[in-house]
Amino acid sequence: MPILALRKVSKSFGALTVADAISFEVPQGQALGIIGPNGAGKSTLFNLITGNIAPDSGTVVLDGTDVTRLSPMQRCRMGVGRSFQIPQPFGKLTVFENLLVAGAFGQGKTEAEVTDSAAAILEQTGLLPKANRPAGGLSLLDRKRLELARAMATNPRLLLLDEIAGGLTDAECNSLVETIRGLHAAGTTIIWIEHVLHALNAVVERLLVLHFGRVIGIGAPAEIMTSREVQEIYLGVEI
């Protein structure tokens, strides 16, 4: 059974169709990359999966359960973790407290039970030296790290990452890729929206291309990147 399945999910904002009968499945443990030009509806797709946006039609199925009408909070507790493209830290809480609340409520545990794992995630993402600083004062880079760290703290089975590699140096990007690979190796299913293709291709086994709210290709990365349609539309190559 796939961990996630979308069946003919559609969403329009007025005349603008941002999701046009999107259907695909993600098997347990897979890493799926999502690419597409700006405005293709990638972040909207995430919001449809997490429940921040309700679809006009179609169903979202998580572990065989129809979750189309469940709230983001309920979906988080079912194992969906996400990062936001524009970082959304809990600004007045410290970095550590950001992870503490995510761990405690995402996993339904006490603060004491998630303290060690939160600290371990801070170490893994390089945020440990800043653990006790208010998250609102972090640099953009650290905010992006915090997005990943906080999503990890909920101990998700399905992790949605929205453009977390943008603006990183090569070294930072490599360490990020290592962290995500580690999560993937541990069995976490990952869906990753990213423009930094070399980072994406270092992790994902499958690519999905989105254009004007439609899935125009899904398959092995090598196959997708060389397909004529993708090159025409996504890379803007005239053939």
Binding site: S71, P72, G81, F90, G91, K92, L93, V101, F105, G108
Partner: peptide, 18 residues
């Protein structure tokens, strides 16, 4: 802690299960 998270960012608080 949950209350503080909601105060700081309601959308993110819901995303982490609050």
């Amino acid at each position: 802690l949950a209350l503080a998270a909601v105060r700081d960012n309601r959308v993110a608080a819901r995303a982490v299960g609050v």
